[in-house]
Every structure is written in structure tokens, then in C-alpha cells.
Design a protein around this nucleic acid. Structure first.
Lengths: 201, 201
DNA sequence: GTGTACATGTAATCCGTTACATGATTCC
DNA sequence: GGAATCATGTAACGGATTACATGTACAC
């Protein structure tokens, strides 16, 4: 029995979220190359989920094709560049819809915050180091916020992208929250630095 | 040349963040078992970073010992349970301090939000599914917030835990922000559901 | 005496990254 | 002519998980 027959009977195949993300990327605009998908992921997917390495995108596309969820064809000799363009199959669109409309638990968000991990061990560092670390995080977050807003503006112009827009709006607010959180932490640290040495002496 | 001699010359060894997290866990209370560390991670580290699988904690502890950053001894025959207890070595404490006080970039936070990934493909789902998904996320986040607050209260009673407390306070605020974000997204979705079918018809 | 918590570890597997290798096309 | 971009892929490796296997101690 082929993979394809299997999931036609048993519902959407059990693929990692990354595979669905790549399939989703493919669902917005057809006939893309892996390279294009990577840029697309960098420009928007990464703000609320993640942008896989280019090598993994290629691997994921091959897997999708093996499952019959996508097809590819190489460009004919008349076209300029040699490239393999992938398109969703009908089966792929159906599987993606089944996945998207399922009520099964998407799972909790995964957040690894290396900055907070460092601050957790703040007693081993100087207040200046900690402050500089948070400051840099603020700067980085501001930069990223600007990028999110760029993506948001681009998405606003396309009426079909209402849901990606919701995701990006969420991401914009999340970045604003991240900034507020960092500022509050800065205040906490200042309070600690003011009180700490006195009690230690 | 041993590993130990190597990093005494060259600064803190290049270990993954997880290794430092485990070492950090060890730095708060000495002579813990892997099992205890796992519970400790579940109860607090996971709220702002991550709780490794128990098998990985054991592996990480062995690596730390191999590098001379921790030592272990098994309980003598008079003690109740057979267990291997790990302690930070002086070298381990020094390496951890060097890591914690370094100015090198901790790296950006990694956030993978499977819920937002699903909503990103919302055009493939019914408004009811989407709403239910967000609703469940809200419930889960509220539960987790309660757990964070529990950890916070426990940490408040220990004066030495000022910095873990900062991390947990950050985490509490983050959960509150996550709730607000989800509510706003719910409103966005309601707006879309109200407008969408009309334009589609 | 039975279930739960304590306690440790191995094996198989997968996910994902970085480094490497290659080559065409386009822009300046 | 040279740099940047487009484009694809392999190989080596590491990080991390799940499943499995095993056994003790304690509470009810």
C-alpha cells in the first residue's frame, strides 16, 4: 500500500509542523522554488513560527512530494534558470485543509529565551553586564518590530492574505509586549542593584 | 591535554545553552540527583527557557562531569535509596560565572507558536474551529499562569533567589501578555468572520 | 500488597543545523 | 571581469525526544 492510499483512508498523515508550514507556504502561491520559499519564510513565517534552514526546506519538499502532497517539475530548456518548481496537488490541498481545520491540539507555544536564562543566573554577573544584555535585546526587538511592520504593510495590500495578516498583527503586538517586558525587567534589575549591594555589605 | 586544562586557558568551554542551564540548576542547591533537577526544571526553568527530557539531563550531567565542571558520588550503602548526586566543582562555578558574566550575545529568543501557525492558514478552517483553538489556548495559558504564580510565591520566600525571582516575574507578565494577545486575536477573528462571508457571497 | 514516586540509564530515531560543493545568471 | 543573487543538494554532526528496561522505597 502506498503512502497516498494510506492517508486517504486514515485522514491527514502525521507530519511534523514544519512540513505543514512548508505546505502552507506553497498554498499561498503556487509553483515556487525551494529558494523562494526560504525567502518567504524569512520574511513572514519566522515572526510567529520559525524559518527552517534552506537545506531542510529542500528535504521537506522532497518528503511532501514522496507523500503525493506536492509535485515538482524542472524548468524547460527555454527558461532562463534551471530550477525545480513545486506545486500543491489536490491531495496536498485536501490534507492541508484537514490539518488546518482539525480540532486536535496544536500544542503549547515553545519559548526559549536565552536572555532570561542569563538573568536567572544574574547573581554571577555584574549589574552592568545584565543591563547591557537587556539593552541589546531591546535594540534587536525594535529592529525586528520594524521588519514585522514591513511584512504587515506588504500583506495589507493583498486581500487574500487576511489570515496571514492576523498572524502578523499578532506578531506586531507580541513584539510590542516583548519591549514592555524588557523595560520592566530593566526596572527590576535597577531595583535589585540598588538594594543588593547594601544588604550584601 | 585534558579538557579541563584547555578551558582554563581559553575561557569557558563552548557548551550548548542546555548544559549551562543544568549547571545553573546545580548552582542553586548542591548535591542533587538528575531526577530532582528534572522536577526543579519543570517547576521553574521551563517557564522562561525549557525543561529538557530526563534522559537528556542525565546525559548532560555526564558531560559536565567529563569536563570537570561537576562531580558526582553515589550514595553509601547506609543511605536509603541508590542515587547519584551531583555537585558543582570550583571549576564549574568559575566557568558558569564566566558564562553568566560574558557580554557575548545570548541570541534571540526562539518562539514557535503552533496556534498562530494554524491561524495563519485560517482560510482553510471554519471560524468555529479557529475560535475553539484560541479558547483552548487561553485556558491553557491561564493554567500555566497559575503555576508560574505558584513558583513565584515559593521563590519569594528564599532571599538568595532574587534573580530567579526576576525571571519568574518576567514570566508572569509574559503570560499576562499572552492572554491579552490571544484576546485581541479573537477579536480580529470575529471581525474577519463577520466581514468575510459577506464579501465572499 | 499494590500503586506511586524515586531513580537511572540505553537505543532508536528524528529534527535540524552548519559546512561544503557546485554552477548558472544578472548586475555593475 | 567580479560580486551578488539564484538555485540545489550532500554529508557530518549534534541536540533532543520517545520508548524501553529495570529496580528500590514508601504510603495506603
Amino acid at each position: 500500500m502506498t503512502n497516498r492510499q494510506k492517508w486517504e483512508e486514515a485522514g491527514p498523515p502525521d507530519l511534523p509542523a514544519t512540513a505543514w508550514a512548508v505546505l502552507g507556504l506553497l498554498s499561498f502561491r503556487g509553483a515556487r522554488t525551494g529558494y523562494e520559499l526560504k525567502k518567504w519564510a524569512d520574511a513572514s513565517l519566522r515572526f510567529f513560527y520559525w524559518s527552517p534552514a534552506i537545506s531542510q526546506i529542500y528535504a521537506e519538499l522532497r518528503r511532501l512530494e514522496r507523500w503525493g502532497l506536492a509535485t515538482s517539475r524542472t524548468s524547460g530548456p527555454q527558461e532562463p534558470r534551471a530550477a525545480r518548481r513545486y506545486t500543491l496537488t489536490d491531495a496536498g490541498r485536501a490534507a492541508l485543509a484537514a490539518w488546518a481545520d482539525g480540532v486536535d491540539d496544536p500544542g503549547p507555544p515553545v519559548l526559549k529565551h536565552p536572555l532570561v536564562l542569563r538573568l536567572w543566573l544574574g547573581h554571577l554577573a555584574t549589574p552592568e553586564t545584565l543591563r547591557a544584555l537587556v539593552e541589546r535585546h531591546l535594540a534587536r526587538t525594535r529592529d525586528e518590530l520594524a521588519e514585522v511592520r514591513g511584512a504587515l504593510r506588504r500583506a495589507e495590500r493583498v486581500p487574500q492574505w487576511a489570515f496571514p495578516l492576523v498572524a502578523l498583527a499578532w506578531s506586531e503586538r507580541r513584539h510590542l509586549a516583548e519591549l514592555a517586558l524588557a523595560e520592566e525587567m530593566l526596572a527590576d534589575l535597577a531595583r535589585l542593584a540598588a538594594a543588593g549591594p547594601a544588604t550584601g555589605a
